[in-house]
Design a protein around this nucleic acid. Structure first.
Lengths: 139, 139
DNA sequence: AACTAAAAGCTTGCATGCTATCAAATAGGA
DNA sequence: TCCTATTTGATAGCATGCAAGCTTTTAGTT
């Protein structure tokens, strides 16, 4: 079986292509693809415990720790104590983080559009369903 | 825009699900998902220069160096000089590497089948075309 | 032949991603 | 209340992945 015909290879390469495309769109903000995803989420729901962030973005807490470290170092977020649960922390946007989050949200819409522009709306929808099916069932 | 509706997120998660699925299938051989891909390729075309391997598997030479280092440490491959071009190296399977490569090839076929079993053959084909389109056009 | 450009593979530095493990804190049951 | 199980976030260690830069070698031009 050839590599190009392997679904795992195909998924990996499509994913890399997507990440690269997305990364370019947010690069001017000084953040990476993953960091932008976190900021985008916080733009919709601010001051969220880290484990909620992990669950929504489907990454482990170990990975999240590193991403939050870098966002905090850039002063885009702040870790605050959670008064109801002293194990937890609240991840909150700084004012600059909020500005970025808003811009990222706009970029995300246009980037999604651009990335799938060659497939029509019907095809795009179908494609998304495939992906969702794959990742929901197999993870 | 919600994360789950973002195509870059969807691709990333589907890819991770795929890698994880594939990794489990080859774990008993003591190799990772990426290492298995390299061995599989060498099983079809042995003693290949590293840059060909990089191009076919679509990873940079920097990444390839690390993967080859680990495969070599496990005595699954060997780096040999390329007599026609002293810049290049030839990546060759050891006898154990060849054994593994053959098994990996078999596993790959069944794993691909299993992974896409819930989509029918038509749907799978369509899905693969989407992925290929995405990664060929956007990279 | 000599010079320049390009290619091959390696190294460094960075960012993700994982698993496994830990301490602290919370929740739940006896 | 007390004991146990679970949860939370952090850490260490590992494997990919990239870009940028380097040396050596080859190819191409003059």
């Amino acid at each position: 079986m050839k590599v190009e015909d392997c679904i795992f290879f195909q998924l990996a390469k499509a994913s890399r292509a997507g990440s690269g495309f997305w990364a370019k769109k947010v690069k001017h903000l000084g953040v990476t693809a993953s960091q932008a995803m976190v900021l985008n989420f916080l733009g919709e729901e601010d001051c969220v415990p880290s484990h909620i962030l992990s669950r929504k973005l489907q990454i482990t807490s170990a990975t999240m720790t590193g991403i939050l470290d870098r966002l905090e170092k850039m002063d885009l977020i702040e870790r605050r104590p959670h008064h109801d649960d002293r194990r937890a922390i609240l991840v909150c946007l700084s004012s600059q983080g909020l500005t970025h989050a808003k811009e990222i949200n706009t970029i995300m819409i246009t980037a999604n559009d651009a990335f799938l522009s060659e497939l029509g709306p019907d095809q795009s929808q179908k494609f998304r369903e495939f992906l969702k099916h794959v990742w929901m069932e197999r993870s």
